[in-house]
């Protein structure tokens, strides 16, 4: 490779850093969302690179459903220490307690949809104008048309028919008071790119991503981790299996896959051979053919 050619990872990194810096330059109060998943971890590391040797000039915000893997919280607290960045936690339980959101009925309800309320309230409370998220266009069809700078109206809503054209590397963050932006620095990354980048840069990730023994039960075609919020129904069998997680979200809707991949190289090989998308393990997308589009319209990330 000649001196001036760049690999796909170098190009994706340069693009993401450019977008993160544009967000800081164009908005007075940006924030970066942190979910504990590998995408938001990579995004936080990119933020470090964007301002090095300066510090990350915005806080990380975690929307806490209260249904976290303990490993996620442990990692989160380590990461903010490691990066020297401020952490803001917005709690779904608070939203429920304050009557802003209502727990869904049924056994082991997911708080995935409730997150939206907490997120919008927290953005308003802290007057965050632009929230960076680790969303990628390859994840899901409705995301394929998402912009780097995605405009949201004063209710946090996304109108897919009224998005600003984005050309070259010009990102238009102008807005009226009360409106906001979601910014997606990893738009052009795929699941594979993220893993390769983690591997290449030796980025530490939570142990949940590597194969480990765990008590799981099968529900809606997924292996869910048995915990305080996932308890077996009479007909469900708790099994001890060797699993790992391809995505990490809420305990109630993140499915494990059976896997022996215990190193990054093994994960990369497994992802390359995978015949099912990473979101295939998520119950939240399966509700309807246009599930993601509906959630994005009301302000979901």
């Amino acid at each position: 490779m000649s001196n001036y050619l760049r690999t796909h990872l170098q190009q994706l990194e340069a693009e993401a850093i450019y977008v993160i810096r544009e967000t800081v330059a164009q908005f007075e109060r940006p924030v970066m969302l942190f979910s504990g998943g590998k995408d938001s971890i990579v995004m936080a590391y990119l933020a470090q690179r964007a301002f090095w040797p300066g510090k990350i000039p915005f806080p990380l915000m975690h929307i806490d459903t209260g249904h976290n893997f303990p490993e996620t919280l442990e990692y989160r607290d380590w990461l903010v220490q490691h990066l020297g960045v401020q952490l803001v936690v917005a709690s779904v339980q608070d939203s429920i307690d304050r009557g802003r959101a209502q727990e869904e009925p049924g056994h082991n309800p997911s708080r995935n949809t409730l997150q939206t309320v907490t997120l919008l309230d927290a953005l308003a409370e802290h007057k965050f104008e632009a929230a960076m998220g680790g969303g990628r266009r390859d994840e899901e069809k409705a995301r394929a048309k998402e912009r780097f700078f995605s405009h949201r109206d004063r209710y946090g809503q996304w109108d897919p028919k009224n998005q600003r054209p984005e050309l070259w590397s010009l990102y238009n963050g102008r807005k009226h008071p009360g409106e906001g932006f979601r910014v997606f620095p990893l738009s052009n990354w795929t699941e594979m790119d993220v893993w390769q980048y983690i591997r290449l840069n030796d980025i530490p990730i939570p142990g949940l991503y590597f194969s480990h023994p765990r008590n799981v039960l099968q529900r809606d075609g997924m292996w869910l981790a048995v915990s305080d919020v996932i308890t077996p129904l009479p007909h469900e069998q708790v099994e001890h299996r060797i699993v790992r997680f391809r995505t990490i979200g809420d305990l109630t809707c993140t499915g494990a896959v059976e896997s022996a991949a215990s190193t990054l190289d093994e994960i990369i090989l497994e992802v390359a051979a995978a015949r099912i998308t990473e979101r295939g393990g998520r119950a939240d997308d399966k509700r309807s053919e246009a599930a993601m589009e509906d959630r994005k319209k009301v302000g979901y990330f």
Partner: peptide
């Protein structure tokens, strides 16, 4: 595979730039 948004699926036309990836 590529006609992502609901309006497009209903009208069977692509109405916005969509980004796809392969390697």
């Amino acid at each position: 595979f590529t006609d992502g948004l609901r309006a497009e699926r209903e009208q069977r036309i692509t109405i916005d730039v969509a980004y796809r990836f392969f390697a």
